[in-house]
């Protein structure tokens, strides 16, 4: 699939890029981003701790949930608001999991 890119094309692109990068208008050149400065901060958390979870009756000590033949949990999040062109309802197809046989 590779196509030859001429040195002249490289030079033109490089020069365009350097000029664009130096101009304050560049944000508008960002694909699909418009001129809005968007900031996708990821929540910072220190995950290594010496705390203990609350209580002894929590889910961590419960019996295995997933037995391979049936599962009691069904996706119930925002996926049900997402259109699903292949679904008869036109929305996310959410079913309880049933293994065959």
């Amino acid at each position: 699939m590779n196509r030859k890119v001429t040195p002249a094309a490289l030079a033109l692109a490089f020069s365009t890029a350097v000029t664009l990068a130096a101009s304050p208008a560049l944000a508008a050149g960002d694909k699909d981003k418009g001129d809005k400065e968007k900031c996708y901060g990821v929540a910072l958390a220190g995950k290594n701790d010496c705390k203990a979870g609350p209580g002894t009756t929590c889910s961590g000590s419960s019996n295995r949930d997933y037995q391979g033949n049936a599962w009691k949990y069904v996706p119930k999040g925002t996926c049900k608001e997402i259109p699903s062109p292949t679904s008869p309802t036109g929305k996310g197809q959410l079913q309880p999991f049933q293994e065959k046989g």
């Binding site: 701790d49 010496c50 705390k51 203990a52 979870g53 609350p54 209580g55 002894t56």
Partner: peptide, 17 residues
């Protein structure tokens, strides 16, 4: 965090919470 053992005696959990 305060919890109880199987006999109802206090079992304290180091929750730092």
């Amino acid at each position: 965090h305060r919890d109880r053992d199987s006999l109802g005696a206090p079992l304290l959990i180091d929750s730092h919470g």
